[in-house]
Design a protein around this nucleic acid. Structure first.
Lengths: 238, 238
DNA sequence: GCCAACTGTGAACGATGTGCGCAATAAAAT
DNA sequence: ATTTTATTGCGCACATCGTTCACAGTTGGC
């Protein structure tokens, strides 16, 4: 029954036995290093164990399922930066929150593959949750209104990062940058354009082959975020 | 070299040999059925083959990697509804797009686990892409501006659906609804509240235990979407 | 000093994705 | 009509994966 507890509630080591050779942080760091370097699929129990110089089964003394290792990883990257004190300017605070989430997600592309349906409540995650929860302190908003605003921002962040990662992934698989990814799909990409079945899509794709593609996504992120903040602002004054 | 082509560019059957026992649609339907019923992890080559009454290795005559089966699945659910003609009202069209994407994502929760980093260009996906591309037809917007607007909407949709699925998942794992999920985490959930380290978060959590939780997410989706559409509207008139 | 709790590990199990070769089949070439 | 050739289904096999279990060694509380 104590073993079915959340990992954050389990003691980091037993009170009795020999002192552990490794720490949770060791496992986590090795796993994150592997995922960053070779993708999430490289994070296997055996590989992580090898990285630590331990037997595969040794990991199960620190983690009860592989999922928990992912939870540790998620909270670890959330802790790569600490949330600051509230500035008193909710716009600035939300902007900072957005940049932080985007940055860590882009720095660790495996996050998007691991996070869906695996919300965790590690200490670092909690600190950022606390930061967002208090962003509107001083404003007369109900909890529901606060949640609505936070929902919008975090939804936009998460969704946009997903798109960015998608394009990065396409670039990685095809070996070319965004401007030519259509053509890079070979005959199929050509057929989409020449077929004439998708005029609107074709027009956008061709026009979007402009030379500013490298920072297009980043600009879109900033611009979209500001518009969403605008939307929140109108809700605040009314 | 023809085998390294995108699946959508490969012929559905060879020109020479015996006629295939199954079709791509058969595989796809079986896989989707499995994923809907038992989660994405139930979609194994062997299980899908069994569902079809075929040997596991037979699937590799229709699909060159398991990833391609996922691509087929993604496009199949995108085709559960056809995009309508443009109404001339971009707001209505974007609203419809949002509802469609949200509905299919909630109907097939495995989509969120499969889609990240696996953008595909099947015929159904292309039709929806064409629909969104033409939403602003008649308005004097550059391709970049159109992309910016679409980015915002689809980012919000994707991100919000991710959140909704996350909460659904928590409810599934803990067996309780959202209002009590904190308490359901046992001693750890209690400690977050009683510890006093996260006052803002605690306040929101307690206040959010209101009786309207069941449609909170849906309402948030609609409200947030309207605000984003507002943001787009201001960009259109200026 | 004893006992109970805890640690690391080797062996093992069932399951997974996938490559290879072979027999059967159907269309194209002769 | 017969041969050739591409293509299909499948049995076998392999490497790898997550995870269980029993066991030997290690520590702290009594």
């Amino acid at each position: 029954m104590s073993s079915e507890q959340v990992i954050w509630a389990r003691p980091t080591r037993g009170a009795r036995g020999p002192q552990p050779t490794h720490t949770r942080e060791d496992l986590t760091a090795a796993a994150v290093r592997l995922a960053d370097a070779e993708g999430i699929d490289a994070v296997t129990i055996r590989r992580v164990a090898a990285e630590l110089g331990a037997a595969p089964t040794a990991l199960y003394r620190y983690v009860s399922r592989k999922d928990e290792l992912f939870e540790l990883m998620m909270d670890a990257v959330a802790g790569e930066a600490d949330p600051p004190e509230h500035s008193g300017d909710w716009r600035a605070d939300l902007r900072l929150l957005a940049e932080h989430h985007r940055a860590t997600a882009l720095r660790h592309p495996w996050l998007a593959q691991v996070a869906p349906g695996r919300a965790t409540l590690g200490p670092n995650t909690l600190r950022w949750l606390e930061f967002s929860s208090g962003v509107f302190d001083g404003h007369p908003l109900s909890a529901d209104e606060i949640l609505l605003n936070l929902d919008m921002v975090t939804a936009f962040i998460g969704g946009h990062v997903l798109q960015e990662l998608g394009e990065v992934d396409i670039a990685r698989r095809t070996g070319v940058d965004h401007e030519r990814w259509l053509a890079a799909q070979g005959a199929y990409g050509e057929s989409i354009i020449t077929g004439g079945e998708y005029p609107f899509l074709t027009r956008i794709m061709i026009e979007a082959q402009a030379p500013h593609a490298h920072d297009r996504l980043e600009r879109n992120f900033r611009l979209g975020l500001e518009r969403i903040l605008d939307g929140i602002a109108t809700g605040l004054t009314s």
